[in-house]
């Protein structure tokens, strides 16, 4: 199965996002590189708004992620509640 990934800047704001991704994607592998964190997952990776909100303790708009995104790979589907990356193979 192909790997999808998302890479985020390593900063205060993304700590919670990364934590949420790890909670919701048991197969995700987190790679910490200089100034950035890259998260790989086989075939599918989901970022859930509610999980992030439960960590940061405030409401969170998923589009805030745009500020911290470095790159991603996979077909994107975004709603108010989640952002999903998938490869269809």
């Amino acid at each position: 199965m192909s790997t999808v990934f998302i890479a985020l800047q390593a900063n205060e704001e993304t700590r919670a996002i990364i934590e949420a991704i790890v909670l919701d994607n048991p197969e995700a592998i987190v790679k910490r590189e200089p100034a950035m964190v890259k998260i790989n997952a086989p075939g599918r990776l989901v970022v859930n708004r509610e999980t992030i909100e439960s960590i940061v303790g405030r409401s969170f708009d998923l589009q805030e992620m745009h500020i911290h995104l470095i790159t991603l790979s996979g077909n994107v589907d975004e709603t108010d509640d989640s952002l999903t990356l998938t490869w269809n193979n």
């Binding site: 800047q9 470095i70 790159t71």
Partner: peptide, 12 residues
């Protein structure tokens, strides 16, 4: 990083 935060949207 400032540019790259836009690139994810461009790639998509």
């Amino acid at each position: 990083f400032s540019a790259q935060s836009d690139e994810a949207r461009h790639m998509t």
